[in-house]
Nucleic acid binder design. Structure first.
Length: 553
RNA sequence: GGCCCCGUAGCUCAGCAGGAUAGAGCAACCGCCUCCUAAGCGGUAGGUCUUGGGUUCGAAUCCCGACGGGGCCGCCA
């Protein structure tokens, strides 16, 4: 609807330029159209006349007069006003909004899908936690935001791949292997002084037990080989946990990408060679450095350490170059905010290797403060008193958990109160939204019991929807596609959550004030069409966010 | 010292990339179930948008500087 009006305004403007009613010939890239806060200002408003005031050298209100005259008899518009300093306010005909309801019912699950992405290939890499232990709450936020972002991009017409980068090559994997081996020996009754820098947590013992059951005690196997076996076993098992935890969250990756495979295929060496060739690296203090300062970083960064081993940065260079080789137009990394210092070197690396740094977008996810009943829930890795993501999901449920993670912009810190998230009452916004959906379903059940068929698109006379609240609901439905586009363009999935809350609130209010199933059958059918359109949009948005849309609560 | 994020109602946060009278939820107070699910609705109260400058027709929004909170600055990951 908004787009149709935008087009109309644009056409009118071009016409004014053509016949000399306006002279500057300055067509803005996009006609700005907004929904005014105050409904008295109409359904849409544009500031076009004000922005044209300077180039036209005329008063905004005069320009508005000219534009309004050109649009006067447009079929979409019921009324066009000039207001304030030069706003042009449009009130659309009711039929426009009835058309929206039909469109929603006609398109069903597809309503809200769009094509701003135009098939652009985007990869969203997220979570990518080290496979050395279970996911915790911070990973959870990144997981949900990454997943929802990917969904939103897909809905907006991008071609999206979800990827998990598995850090299975570094030294922390060796540490895991050593830790498992020590626990394994302990199980054999050996007395072990467990090292400070080992993985202390109890799950390592579980891993050792499982390994012992499957592969035996590794007695007589040379140390290095035993560590390697333990490491590989550990990574494999931990990845299974991680995948299962993510599954419990409704998250599935299209691809799990192994860091180790980069080394196995010599990709790291190849990229380093390219850097050398371009004279972007140099040796100093027995180490190999990348000249990231040439591209805006604070200092140069090490690729190969003086002991000959590679830094994570080295494999990240290869990994990210390889992403673009795979044909992605844009690559999004979802990281914890504590990694922000890493961004300049990544962008520098891309620039050095001839990629526009803008093709890599890093989404930083701020910290999660875990609370219980308003009090900080302290997690010490040392003490082993940390709560895993899985425990949180099991305690509060996937829907509530996801909703809380998505409720805030990702660049602000999040207080996650376990008790609040667990509450199954109106204090909990998840249920508020889901309840709206369940209510429509309930109305449908009652209608069917009364022998009324739920109307489909184009089957009812929607002009029976005369109430202001009814038109307002239809207008809200019309905004859903815009919410998706906004969320996709600005990488802000939380917008969909806010949209959901607004729509649910509007529906609850309507429900309380007016009955859907009334004596007059025409009105009943019209209202059923409206609330079912609401149901479709609620379901679409909930599903998109990975939340269930219950038919009964 | 350098860098990143945040600062809006008592609390937790939105604010549609510059627009008209600044919003929601929770907490407080007052109301609404012989009526499609009260996990709901209506109403009252609550604000120098941390602060000082700047940009312009117009700033919570953009720029610069303070102040306050959190985070990061490794040949760790």
């Amino acid at each position: 609807m908004k787009e149709q009006l935008r087009l109309a305004i644009r056409t009118a403007l071009e016409q004014c330029f053509a016949d000399g009613r306006l002279t500057s010939g300055l067509l803005p890239d996009e006609v700005q159209l907004e929904v005014p806060k105050n409904p008295e200002h109409g359904d849409f408003a544009t500031n076009l006349a004000m922005t044209l005031a300077k180039p036209e050298r005329r008063a905004p209100r005069q320009i508005a007069e000219v534009l309004t005259a050109a649009l006067r008899d447009h079929p979409l518009c019921e009324k066009i006003d000039i207001a304030g300093p030069g706003f042009i306010n449009f009130r659309l005909r009711s039929s426009c909004w009835y058309e929206v309801i039909d469109q929603v019912l006609r398109q069903g699950q597809d309503y809200g899908r769009g094509n701003v992405g135009n098939g652009t290939k985007i990869q969203v890499e997220f979570v990518s936690a080290n496979p050395t232990g279970p996911l915790h709450i911070g990973h959870g936020r990144g997981a949900v935001v990454g997943d929802a972002l990917a969904a939103v991009l897909q809905a907006a017409g991008y071609e999206v791949q979800r990827e998990y980068y598995v850090n299975d090559a570094g030294n922390q994997v060796q540490t895991l292997g050593r830790s498992i081996l020590l626990r394994l020996r302990e199980l054999q009754g050996e007395k072990i002084a467990f090292p400070e820098d080992g993985y202390q947590a109890p799950y390592v013992v579980d891993l050792a037990e499982k390994l012992s059951a499957e592969l035996g005690t590794l007695g007589g196997v040379p140390e290095a080989e035993a560590i390697d076996t333990c490491a590989r076993f550990g990574v494999k098992e931990v990845l299974k946990w991680i995948a299962a935890d993510l599954q419990a969250f409704g998250i599935q990756f299209d691809n799990w990408y192994s860091e180790k495979s980069l080394y196995d295929r010599d990709m790291v060496e190849q990229e380093l060679a390219k850097l050398k060739e371009k004279n972007l690296s140099f040796e100093k203090d027995d180490a190999l450095w990348l000249k990231t300062t040439e591209f805006g970083d604070d200092k140069d960064r090490v690729l190969i350490k003086s002991d000959g081993s590679y830094t994570y940065f080295a494999s990240d260079v290869a990994y990210h170059m390889e992403k673009f080789d795979r044909g992605f137009d844009r690559v999004i990394d979802v990281w914890g905010a504590d990694h922000h210092g890493y961004i300049p070197r990544m962008k520098a690396m891309l620039a050095g290797l001839g990629h526009p740094p803008e093709d890599l977008e890093v989404l930083l996810i701020q910290m999660v403060n875990l609370l219980r009943d308003g009090k900080p829930y302290i997690m010490g890795k040392r003490s082993g008193n940390f709560i895993t993501l899985r425990e949180v999901i099991d305690e509060v449920g996937s829907d509530a958990c996801r909703f809380f993670f998505l409720m805030r912009r990702c660049d602000s810190q999040l207080d996650f109160d376990l008790e609040l998230a667990k509450q199954q009452n109106s204090d909990n916004p998840v249920y508020y939204v889901q309840y709206a959906h369940a209510r429509v379903c309930s109305i449908n059940r009652n209608a069917q019991e009364a022998g009324i068929d739920i109307p489909t698109a184009g089957k009812t006379d929607l002009s029976r929807l005369e109430l202001e609240e009814e038109l307002a609901l239809a207008k809200q439905l019309a905004r859903y596609p815009e919410a998706i586009i906004g969320a996709a363009l600005y990488y802000e999935p939380h917008r969909v959550i806010f949209y959901l809350q607004d729509l649910a609130a509007q529906f609850h209010s309507y429900y309380n004030r007016h009955r859907v199933l009334v004596d007059d059958s025409e009105t009943t059918l019209a209202r059923l069409s409206l609330v079912n359109a609401v149901r479709v949009v609620l379901a679409n948005a909930l599903t998109l966010m990975g939340l269930s849309a219950p038919e009964q609560m």
